[in-house]
Design a binder for these strands. Structure first.
Length: 357
DNA sequence: AAGTCGGGGGC
DNA sequence: GCCCCAGACTT
C-alpha cells in the first residue's frame, strides 16, 4: 500500500535534501514568499529572486506598504506577475486581520489572495507542522508512478483523490519534511523531463510503474492547446538621451508593467513614420531592427522592430508615452523579458550617416 | 471545465 | 519543436 513509501522517503530526504535559501530560516513569511515564487517555476530560477526579494522586503509589513513599481521591479523577469500583486493584497489582509502574522491554519491560509490548495498546504506543513498535503506537479507524477495510475492528472477529481490518499499516510510528526520529500524526489529523481533515475530511487522496490515498465508513460495528461500567434512591431523611439516607454493596462497580459511602444502587425518603415507623425513626434532617422520571438504560455509574439530618432515637439499629442533616461528603465521601470531583444537599443546611439528620413 | 497568466531549461 | 515547472484566478 501507499503507506510503504513514508519511511524510505523520509530516510532518503534526510540524506539528500538540497540546501536551499528558504530552508535556512523557516519563518512563515519566507516560506510563503518561496512558495509563491516556486509556482510553475523551477528552484534554480527562483534562488536569486528569493534572495533579492526577501532582502528588500524582509517581512509582511514591508511587503504590504511597498510601492507597486518597486514591487514589480523585484519580480521583473520571474513571470506570472499577478502572483506578486496578489501576494501584496494578502499581506495587507495579514496586517489588518491577522496582526501581521501568517495564520497557522490551513483554511485561513487558503482564504488569502494567491494562496490555493497547494500553497496553503505547503506553508501550513513546512512553517507550522500542520499535517496537510501539498500536491504539486512533482507529487502528481511521483504518486501516479508509484501506483501505476493512468488517471489524467489534469482532472480536478484526480487531484482531489491524490490529496486524500496522501493525507491518509502523512506522518503527524514531520508533515513538512514529508511533503518536501515527495517534491524533492519528483524534482531530482523521478524527474519531469528525461529518464527517471530509478537506479537511485528509494521507492524503486515499491513502484508499480517500474514493475510494469511503464514509468515513462506516466503520468497521463491531456495536452495543452496550441498557442495563438500575434505579430507586433516594436518601436525604440529616442529623443536625445531619452527613450519612450509606456505603462501597460492594469489587466491582462503583463498587467501594469512598462513596455516599448508597439503596434499590431508587421509594419513597413513608412507605416511607422506615419504613426510617429500622427503623434506630432518629428522623426529624424529610422532604422529597422532584427526580428525576434517571445513565447508565453498561451500566445507567441513574432516581432519586428524599428529604432527612430525624433524631436519631441511642444504640441506632441498625448500618447501615453513616457520619455525617460535609459538607466532609469533599468533601475526603476519593470520591463518584461518579451522586449529584451529591443530594450538593448534604448541606450545605443544611432549612426549619423544613414537612414535619414 | 476551460482559458488566462511568464519565462526558462531540458531533450 | 514540445514538455514542464513546489499553481491560482477568472469566466
Amino acid at each position: 500500500m501507499l503507506n510503504e513509501i513514508v519511511e524510505p522517503l523520509l530516510m532518503w530526504f534526510r540524506a539528500n535534501a538540497r540546501v536551499l535559501p528558504w530552508r535556512e530560516d523557516k519563518a512563515a513569511y519566507r516560506i510563503w514568499v518561496s512558495e509563491i515564487m516556486l509556482q510553475q517555476t523551477r528552484v534554480e530560477a527562483v534562488k536569486p529572486f528569493f534572495e533579492r526579494f526577501t532582502k528588500a522586503l524582509p517581512d509582511v509589513h514591508a511587503l504590504a506598504v511597498c510601492e507597486e513599481d518597486k514591487l514589480l521591479k523585484l519580480w521583473e523577469g520571474l513571470g506570472y506577475y499577478n502572483r506578486v500583486r496578489n501576494m501584496q493584497i494578502a499581506a495587507k489582509t495579514i496586517v489588518e486581520e491577522f496582526d501581521g502574522q501568517l495564520p497557522a491554519d490551513y483554511e485561513a491560509l487558503l482564504s488569502l489572495k494567491g494562496i490555493g490548495n497547494y500553497t496553503a498546504g505547503a506553508v501550513a506543513s513546512i512553517a507550522y507542522n500542520i499535517p496537510v498535503p501539498a500536491v504539486d506537479g512533482n507529487v502528481l507524477r511521483v504518486i501516479s508512478r508509484v501506483l501505476a495510475s493512468e488517471e489524467d492528472i489534469m482532472k480536478q477529481s484526480v487531484r482531489k483523490k491524490m490529496e486524500e490518499d496522501i493525507k491518509a499516510i502523512m506522518p503527524k510528526d514531520c508533515p513538512g519534511d514529508f511533503n518536501q520529500a515527495l517534491m524533492e524526489l519528483g524534482a531530482t529523481v523521478c524527474v519531469p523531463n528525461g529518464m527517471a533515475k530509478c537506479d537511485i530511487c528509494p521507492l524503486a522496490s515499491i513502484c508499480k510503474a517500474k514493475a510494469l515498465d511503464i514509468v515513462m508513460e506516466l503520468p497521463k495528461k491531456t495536452k495543452q492547446k496550441p498557442r495563438r500567434i500575434e505579430e507586433k512591431t516594436v518601436l525604440v523611439i529616442k529623443d536625445g538621451d531619452k527613450a519612450a516607454i509606456r505603462k501597460r493596462p492594469k489587466k491582462g497580459l503583463l498587467a501594469g508593467l512598462y513596455e516599448l511602444p508597439n503596434l499590431e502587425g508587421h509594419l513597413t518603415a513608412d507605416e511607422v513614420l506615419e504613426y510617429i507623425k500622427e503623434r506630432q513626434l518629428a522623426p529624424i532617422r529610422i532604422r529597422q531592427l532584427r526580428e525576434s520571438k517571445h513565447i508565453f504560455s498561451h500566445v507567441e509574439w513574432r516581432m519586428t522592430g524599428y529604432v527612430i530618432q525624433v524631436e519631441e515637439l511642444e504640441n506632441a499629442k498625448d500618447t501615453g508615452m513616457l520619455f525617460v533616461e535609459p538607466w532609469k528603465t533599468q533601475e526603476e521601470y519593470p520591463i518584461p523579458a518579451a522586449f529584451g531583444a529591443y530594450a538593448d537599443y534604448l541606450q545605443i546611439k544611432l549612426g549619423q550617416e544613414k537612414y535619414e528620413v
